[in-house]
């Protein structure tokens, strides 16, 4: 994939990604059998040309191996209270070491996600469980967003992302 001249994501999209949203990701193996996992955090580069998601490999199944083998992944960012949802695709994903500041970033994310879950009737303990990682060893996977789509439920779901705020559900 070539790097587009303008980033796929605009500042509003980047802000949405860095707000307290649930991050989930999909990859696939050589036979196109998909894998799926929940990320425990995310980071976006200042120029918006690189997204990093953080995973607990013990809970990610074959996802990490699939990404390493193909570089292809899809990452969904969802704000459950509003159903606003964004999907980003990448084809150059690689595993990277965690950077300075990532640990604090992940702590902040986990803390911020508690009210997000409780707002949709899931207890705080649910957030801690879903975002927990047995053994504590995390993996960072970084990729260039090459395409992005609206995935908020409604008639516009699946459309390529337009600049500005995501549509509300049903619109």
């Amino acid at each position: 994939m070539t790097t587009p001249s303008e980033p796929v994501l605009d500042p509003a999209h980047a802000a949405f990604i860095m707000s307290p949203v649930i991050v989930t990701a999909a990859a696939r193996d050589a036979q196109n059998v998909p894998s799926v996992c929940i990320a425990v955090g995310r980071r976006i580069a200042e120029d918006r040309r690189r997204i990093t998601i953080f995973l607990c490999p013990a809970r990610a199944g074959t996802f990490v191996a699939d990404v390493v083998a193909s570089g292809a992944l899809a990452v969904v960012f969802c704000e459950p209270a509003s159903n606003r949802t964004l999907q980003v695709k990448g084809f150059d994903a690689v595993v990277e070491p965690l950077a300075d500041g990532d640990a604090a970033l992940l702590d902040d994310y986990a803390e911020a996600m508690i009210p997000v879950y409780t707002a949709v009737d899931a207890p705080a303990a649910h957030a801690r469980s879903v975002l927990g990682c047995p053994g504590g060893k995390l993996v960072a996977i970084s990729f260039t967003p090459s395409a992005a789509f609206v995935q908020t439920p409604g008639p516009r779901a699946g459309e390529p992302l337009q600049p500005g705020a995501l549509p509300r559900a049903g619109l």
Binding site: A25, A27, N32, P34, S70, A74, T85
Partner: peptide, 22 residues
């Protein structure tokens, strides 16, 4: 329950896709 499931699929060209399940 209130927590939706998730679904990963893959296009024939190898592009993965993620979706929430109602």
């Amino acid at each position: 329950g209130v927590i939706p499931g998730m679904m990963a699929t893959c296009a024939p060209d190898g592009t993965p896709n993620m979706a929430y399940l109602s």
